[in-house]
């Protein structure tokens, strides 16, 4: 009788990589729709650019490595990376930045480390950090939510802006858009606190509606819904997501209870920026996360604590990308020190 030996987590699944990745991409749709509704059509254009760049880069590098291009493209992992980059960056980012980011994600972060399954860092988040570090100005200009902007960013205006077209016919689209970029709610909140305002004063601004940022609450809610569908479909397991959300809730709850004037409420932390996108779609990347059950909880908790710490005390308003990359570095150690009990052995090793 042959025993099937599999690497941890010792759960057999009928899902192949391409199916998993396909479902992840499909579950992103509610969030994308919410983002398009609140922040205009730019996101769709970004997805288009990112998907084309990522798939071409993947095909080119597989050709260089003498491997099957068809297999690599059909596993859909480059597609998911592309969509994650596209939804993470500001919707009206110039096209060449998206291209640089996608190229970096696929070529440097993924394939120079050995391709799918071997990369240490999450490609999408590494690309985001690359862009944020290299082009801080463009990366902190988010589109104003449609409720605050006079007119929504149409698909033509988005194209004109992203591709930096300046023909006479399109100029008025660009100008119409230029007036409507602004800092994200988390950014506004951070700037206000650093200028000596209290958190309740900052929340009076028009980018907030009482508790969270205008639009952002619904975007995060949509990603949460997509994430719950993924849980239901058993595409991901709950440990990492719960670890992140619990850690953010506990940390920000303690901070808010101790000093509500200088801390964001748990609500603002959970439903702003990329929290839900990170918790369900980014941190749950099976390649770069810890593999055991307890390890995943710890991995998630590390991300959650880091998000809170960087948002509250660090230099960047949203910390998802940095938190994920730092936790990626910890993942091998977590796997080393937290090993599941082997069948027939005592607890411990």
């Amino acid at each position: 009788m042959a025993f099937k030996i599999a690497s941890s987590p010792h759960v057999s699944t009928s899902l192949q990589t391409n199916k998993v990745m396909q479902r992840v991409a499909l579950c992103l749709i509610p969030g994308i729709l919410a983002q398009v509704y609140f922040f205009g059509m730019g996101t769709l254009v970004q997805i288009l650019i990112a998907v084309i760049t990522c798939l071409s880069a993947e095909a080119a590098i597989m050709k260089l490595r003498n491997k099957s291009i068809k297999n690599a493209l059909s596993d859909n992992s480059a597609l998911v990376t592309a969509v994650l980059i596209a939804v993470a960056i500001p919707p009206l980012t110039p096209w060449w930045m998206t291209v640089i980011g996608c190229f970096f994600a696929i070529v440097i972060v993924k394939h120079l480390y050995g391709g799918l399954g071997n990369n240490i860092f999450n490609p999408a988040m590494a690309a985001y950090v690359l862009l944020l570090v290299s082009f801080p100005l463009q990366m902190t200009n988010w589109v104003a939510p449609s409720e605050l902007a006079a007119n929504q960013v149409s698909i033509t205006a988005a194209f004109a802006h992203i591709f930096e077209l300046s023909t006479a016919g399109l100029d008025h689209f660009r100008i119409a858009v230029d007036g409507h970029t602004m800092a994200t709610p988390l950014d506004t909140f951070k700037t206000d606190l650093s200028m000596g305002m209290t958190s309740s004063e900052s929340l009076q601004r028009n980018v907030f509606d009482g508790m969270t940022g205008v639009g952002w609450f619904w975007v995060n809610l949509a990603y949460l819904a997509g994430g719950l569908i993924m849980l239901k479909l058993k595409v991901i397991r709950w440990h990492i997501s719960v670890g992140i959300l619990m850690a953010i809730f506990v940390c920000s709850g303690i901070g808010f209870l101790l000093n509500p004037d200088t801390h964001a409420s748990p609500m603002l932390h959970l439903f702003s920026g990329g929290t839900m996108l990170c918790a369900f779609f980014i941190a749950t990347d099976p390649v770069t996360a810890a593999t055991s059950t307890r390890g995943r909880l710890l991995f998630g908790a590390i991300i959650g604590v880091l998000i809170f710490v960087i948002r509250t005390y660090g230099g960047y308003p949203d910390a998802v990308a940095f938190a994920v990359l730092l936790a990626n570095m910890c993942a091998p150690f977590i796997d080393y020190y937290i090993r599941p009990r082997s069948y027939g052995h005592r607890a411990g090793n």
Binding site: I100, S134, F135
Partner: peptide, 18 residues
């Protein structure tokens, strides 16, 4: 118009060196 800061920063040096 916008300098590519990564290339100027130490991480860019490491990547270029590699």
């Amino acid at each position: 118009d916008t300098p590519f800061l990564l290339a100027m920063l130490p991480p860019g040096a490491f990547i270029a060196m590699g």
